[in-house]
Amino acid sequence: MIKEVFIIGIGGAVGSILRYTTGQYIAKHFPHAIPTGTLLVNIIGCLLIGFLIGFFDKQQIINAHWKFLLITGFCGGFTTFSTFAAENYNLITNNQIPQALLYIGLSVILGLLAVWAGLSISRLIA
């Protein structure tokens, strides 16, 4: 288990650094009213996680270390949105539409409420 955690950590560190640098580059060179850097990172991450899942499946690569490094680590560090999208895709393709809609709705609504709650708590304490 320690080896897997270390492998995921390496992939996550590289993904996080790339997320930050990509986001900064896009924001600097393509300023818009919305966070374009984050949007682009999320879309690239979704494309990449879909490709990797399909590639590993098609090539019948069963070495879990590569999956830990690239999918869980790198894609997870690059953007957790890619994991969220892949999980919803799996729910939809397994004909679990109500569960997918519930997961999407709860993630967005509860995520926004959690940010609001965190900010509110920080204002009370700080």
Rank of each mutant, 00 (worst) to 15 (best):
P98N: 07
A100R: 13
I44S: 10
T80P: 02
I109D: 01
F81Q: 07
F6T: 10
L113Y: 10
L52T: 02
T83P: 01
A13V: 04
I8F: 02
I49V: 12
L102P: 04
P35L: 00
Y89S: 10
L119E: 15
L106I: 15
T36K: 13
I34N: 12
L52Q: 10
I10K: 14
L112P: 01
V5L: 15
M1N: 13
A33H: 14
L39Q: 02
V5A: 15
L91N: 13
G118L: 11
T80L: 13
I92P: 11
I109P: 02
A86L: 08
K67W: 03
I71F: 02
F81H: 11
G37V: 11
R123E: 05
R19K: 13
F30H: 09
G118Y: 07
I8T: 08
I121K: 07
G76E: 02
I7L: 11
G105S: 14
G12H: 08
L39F: 08
A27Q: 07
G54T: 00
A33S: 13
T21M: 12
I109T: 07
A86S: 13
V108F: 11
L40I: 15
T36N: 13
V41W: 10
E87Y: 04
I109G: 01
A64C: 00
T83F: 06
S16D: 03
N90Y: 14
A33P: 00
F55V: 00
F51S: 04
L40M: 09
I49P: 07
